[in-house]
């Protein structure tokens, strides 16, 4: 009897947890192997998928009666995932890191310039199309022309 609970129930809970962790591991394996390798940022996606395995491992450690392992891995797994993503970004990620790919910074600057020129064009177009302010001017012109006609 552990904590006043029947050992049969504890064994059943352990079995259920192990089955859940095994299912999570299999789902993550299918996801990691089937994900398209030509996708952008696929390394980050793989790290994300393997996070499921980390949690499944923690559940399995707890089910196998090893809370020390579970606690250690609970603290180290996020550090590991973040260190790997950080290392990839600073050493191999030519898609997002402007240090590794200087063209990326130039392209972003050009995009900014394009945005600014688009904004200016939009303002000019709006000014040209917006006739609401011109109505008073037209009225003044009509009055002036009427006055001129009377004279």
């Amino acid at each position: 009897m552990m904590f006043g609970i029947d050992p049969g129930i504890i064994n059943m809970i352990q079995s259920i947890l192990l089955v859940i962790s095994a299912l999570l591991i299999l789902i993550a394996v299918v996801g990691v192997l089937r994900i398209d390798r030509n996708l952008d940022n696929v390394v980050y996606a793989r790290i994300h998928i393997l996070g499921i395995v980390d949690i499944a491992g923690i559940i399995a450690f707890l089910a196998l009666g090893q809370p020390l392992f579970a606690l250690i891995y609970l603290f180290l797994a996020p550090l590991l995932a973040h260190a790997l993503a950080n290392a990839y970004f600073h050493s191999e990620d030519t898609l997002n890191n402007p240090v590794l790919n200087p063209n990326l910074e130039e392209a972003s600057k050009e995009e900014d310039y394009e945005d600014e020129s688009d904004l200016i064009n939009e303002v000019i177009l709006e000014d040209n199309l917006d006739m609401s302010d011109d109505s008073s001017i037209d009225e003044n012109l009509d009055e002036k022309s009427e006055d001129d006609g009377n004279d």
């Binding site: 299912l23 394996v29 192997l33 393997l50 491992g57 191999e92």
Partner: peptide, 30 residues
């Protein structure tokens, strides 16, 4: 499931980049 996962991590390790090797190795360790 663990044996299947071990084989999958071996497949991940064989990808070209160093980062994928590291990711695969850490998963293999687990």
């Amino acid at each position: 499931a663990l044996i299947v996962f071990l084989i999958a991590t071996l497949r991940i390790i064989t990808y070209k980049s160093i980062s994928m090797g590291l990711i695969g190795t850490s998963s293999f360790t687990l």
